[in-house]
Amino acid sequence: MQSERSSHLNSVGDLVEDHYADVYRFAYRLSGSHADAEDLTQQAFLTACRKRYQVQDPDRIRGWLLTIVRNTFLKTRQRDERMIAAFEDVAVSSNDFDSDTFRFDEETLQKALNEIPEHYKTPLLLYYFEEIGYKEIGELLGIPIGTVMSRLSRARSVLRERLCRENETSEISETEDSRNNPASEVSAKQKDQ
């Protein structure tokens, strides 16, 4: 019986080999800390090792692992109602879709993610990491589809707003820099040539 259960996974070594990097990346984006991500990754694989007989569909192993990371993360955090309320109050503009090039650095991206409460952030991360839609996310997290849709849509809108705002700010500051220091613009142009 045990061997049947485990047959979905060739070995724990394969499981780790195939997924540890993605699990770590997800854990980092979720927690915002490399030290926490290391702990979460290690703990998630230990849990996965114990519960691997639960895996029904080998194609969904990675999603299952990411869900374990999320559950492990939740055990270490208190739900922050004030953060959730503040996030839900953020106004999002709905008609500014002109930019088609975004430039945001790693720090800006992680800072924007850190400001999103977990139960909005997890669907967002699953959307991008797993490239899955609201139905699959709902199944993975055990959340009704309507709830996933509203959380995902809100999280994406707020993230987009924050990153675009950052994009505009950096463009403005670059323009001001070049106004204040025309020489830098000239040298930049020379560099381009």
Binding site: V12, V16, T41, L46, R50, F102, F104
Partner: peptide, 25 residues
């Protein structure tokens, strides 16, 4: 956004640590 989200450096030795702990279990 997606490629940038996935661009996270993996700590050296992490895989070995996980393999070591999971092999015991």
């Amino acid at each position: 956004l997606r490629p940038q989200l996935l661009e996270v450096a993996i700590p050296e030795g992490l895989k070995e640590q996980i393999l070591q702990s999971t092999s015991a279990l």
